[in-house]
Design a protein around this nucleic acid. Structure first.
Lengths: 190, 190
DNA sequence: ACCTGAACACCGTTCAAGT
DNA sequence: ACCTGAACACCGTTCAAGT
């Protein structure tokens, strides 16, 4: 039987840790415990090592992202949902790389591999909705899109954030264009 | 004026640290000082931070590598010198990646960028010697060769070390083959 | 069943005292 | 001019004592 205060603690720890790591990747475990208002023992009961905590934070971020898809699709047209979702994804990737210096390359690699499948799944959902209502090309590939997303994150990290116009460009390319007019405009836009 | 014991200490620290890091990338600064037979203060006088020590170790490794070129070229024919040198390079790269988990991604990147130029320079020296005596193709590009070297290091890390046969293959490709016969054999060898 | 927080061994780093 | 090593503040982690 999981006590309710235990569950609440777990959530508080994760929230505090997420905030703390976003501010400073070098934050100590004891400091996180204090920020969360629990003893260090409680922190270690829930996350037995520093690495497991970092992994949980990122896993949680990905879970939110995956889980937000149905809501986004209910609220707006598929292309708009995809735009919003991708913006969130880029922000999550940037956070992951913010952690980067506190995360060992090996851990970083394993985290990327573990989240690849679910992320592709979410993109597939968004694509399928657009393909069904005719706003996204039927030959669009989720894996290709994710690849392009990597370029977006790099663009977002640069001094001048060009990720939004670049995303608009990609989404244009995904759209269905009866006369190819928008495709021409896209080439001009580069 | 640099005292001779100071210079000796610096060398002893670097040697001890190189050995220690090769065994365990998580070695502590105090442990390194003890292994080198100096007080922690002396260690910090020479290398004011952990990162500066790691960087110095790798820099030293690259310096040795660059410096070994004339000796190698004096002792053996260019292609043989290139083979030996590349074997040493792969071993150095493997060490760098052994450090990898103790080195921040940012530091790892900057170290790679800083050593790129000198490494290309060393390869150019070896190539030029081979081009002069007609054993290496005149159109061979040092940068391409270094790129292929990356594949060698990955092959060396795999459970079955295939780096030596792969290196032989690349060197075959660099050689001058009057009738193209060796090139055919090379394709068969894959 | 879970939490607290003092305690442990050790970390990176500093600096007064020596030679 | 340089070295030593005790000392400092803090680290990740544990565990006896509580509720």
């Amino acid at each position: 039987m999981v006590r309710s205060d235990a569950r609440a603690n777990r959530a508080r720890i994760l929230a505090a840790a997420r905030e703390a790591f976003a501010r400073d990747g070098d934050i100590s475990m004891n400091q996180i415990a204090q920020l969360a208002g629990v003893g260090p023992g409680t922190l270690y009961r829930n996350y037995p090592s520093r690495e497991s905590l970092v992994l949980a934070i990122y896993q949680d971020e990905v879970d939110r992202l995956i889980g937000s898809v149905p809501q986004l699709l209910a609220e707006r047209p598929p292309l708009e949902a995809l735009r919003q979702w991708t913006t969130d994804l880029v922000s999550a990737m940037r956070k992951k790389h913010g952690l980067g210096d506190a995360l060992s390359p090996t851990a970083h690699k394993s985290i990327t591999e573990q989240t690849y499948g679910p992320v592709i799944g979410a993109i597939t959902q968004l694509f399928d909705a657009g393909k069904r209502d005719g706003t996204i090309r039927t030959d669009a590939e989720p894996a290709d899109f994710l690849q392009l997303t990597g370029a977006l994150w790099r663009a977002a990290s640069a001094e001048k954030d060009r990720s939004q116009p670049m995303l608009a460009l990609i989404l244009d390319g995904l759209g269905v264009h009866p006369h190819g007019a928008v495709t021409d405009a896209r080439v001009d836009g580069i």
